[in-house]
Design a protein around this nucleic acid. Sequence first.
DNA 1: ATCAGATATAGCTTTTAACTATAGCTATTT
DNA 2: AAATAGCTATAGTTAAAAGCTATATCTGAT
Lengths: 277, 277
Amino acid sequence: MDLKHLNYFITVYEQKSFSSAAKYCFIAQPSISAAVAQLEQELQQVLFTRHARGVTPTEQGEKLYPLAKQLIGQADAIKQTFLSQGIQQSFRLGVTKGLGVKRMSALLNDFTSAETTMELTLVPQHENSDARIIIKEELKDEEKYHLIWQEDYLLVLPINHPLSLKDEIQLTDLDGLAFIQRSPCNAWQMLNDTLTLSGIQLDIRAKIQTIDYALGLVRAGLGCALVPAHPEIIENTDLTFKAIDKLQLTREIVLAYQHTTPLLRTLKQQVKLISEF
Amino acid sequence: MDLKHLNYFITVYEQKSFSSAAKYCFIAQPSISAAVAQLEQELQQVLFTRHARGVTPTEQGEKLYPLAKQLIGQADAIKQTFLSQGIQQSFRLGVTKGLGVKRMSALLNDFTSAETTMELTLVPQHENSDARIIIKEELKDEEKYHLIWQEDYLLVLPINHPLSLKDEIQLTDLDGLAFIQRSPCNAWQMLNDTLTLSGIQLDIRAKIQTIDYALGLVRAGLGCALVPAHPEIIENTDLTFKAIDKLQLTREIVLAYQHTTPLLRTLKQQVKLISEF
DNA sequence: ATCAGATATAGCTTTTAACTATAGCTATTT
DNA sequence: AAATAGCTATAGTTAAAAGCTATATCTGAT
């Protein structure tokens, strides 16, 4: 009996699908098929009934699942018994501010549970680190990267603002608009250039740094602002978010690194899962 | 962590030697080296200290052994949970009488514990069977075979018999000797031919079948006999065993079979272990 | 009836785990 | 002290296993 196959079996059971399990295991779908078939052969039992919408475990599959889970757990425990004695591998991850706590902690949680013997340290993005989660524009020349999230910059307005009634916001609507400038902000430069070219001028009411501060000021009716629209921000139902027509302001959040290490490999896999679903 | 590697580790631990473990696992010695090295790499621990007379487990090796043993046991248990539900595979083994109970049951014990889901039936050698353990002369034409044990026929005498004082027994010493004939016996025919050619005649006092009966009669002083000298027989210290000079009477006990099946493969491996040590 | 989404199959490539041969080490024997 | 025997490690090769891509096939839903 092969632990690798049992692991595949477990994922299939939890996903109720071969193809989905394949993605989670970072292998091709036929490989999952083969592994399960081999287990079924070895145990002389059919473990899943296959149908057009995935698979459902048979009675035997149901019986195997807790046993397999336990066995894998025990194997992991053995491994950790020895690894935790040794040098805790440390990993320093640089993180840009303002990426949203929830999704970031979800990612880091996956990472730390996949690498239980690792000691993860979060550092500001410019400090020395093994990898960085940053906006694409912040990439250094020597760094390679993988896309994690992509999100548009949206105009955020108080819900009672006149513009919130419009379906589409045009560039010209921005002329003379009360605006809260948040810097540093990658989109700001681009927006400002575009506006200058069109002869449109904003009415800057405040210059601040954090997104949360900006949202607070908008909520207070001080003006509008431009913010990256990630899930955690859009949740604010007491604010209105609008795209600006003909102006695509996007930020790409990437995993940046220079050297590949085993730990980084794991992190890259977690990132891959995020960007694929 | 690979269960196969853990199994190798267990065997090395029990054998206290890589090369011996290799034989027990039916693989080459470098493969054991590689497997252990890989485990050591994965656990970041040295498991054995290597020296010129084999290996001794390190503290970490000692710690791993019971854990590994338990894990393997659990994996086996899972397999058997499912296999025992299915069809018990049956295996009929034909066995010639008089091969010695102890070594035979040791062999069968190894066999049944290697194939826990098998239902083993012992049958007389001429009945229909999947394989037979017989004297080489009993082989059928279609059968292939592997040697299991080889043993000489020795003359067995009461301890107080005059011949028991001699270092070497010559053919001529047998002339007129009180003798217990055991038949059927493969060596008897050959001995008889040789004696006839030399003009030597035995004094047949009894014709019986089993070895134990013959030993009893010899013990009782009725005469001498010719018996295959396997360990269990030589154990009788109240009897004297002597080779007959210039007369090599040998019997080869072989595993005979016609068709190879998975179960037979296991049995052949067990047999191989016996004949190699 | 078609389509979308899922698993199975075929053929090929890469990786892994074996093997053989041999080097290198060390305790024992000559 | 040198030779030997018995181990494990290393190098290089071969064969089996596990992976991939492309595609066929099936089935429930549109």
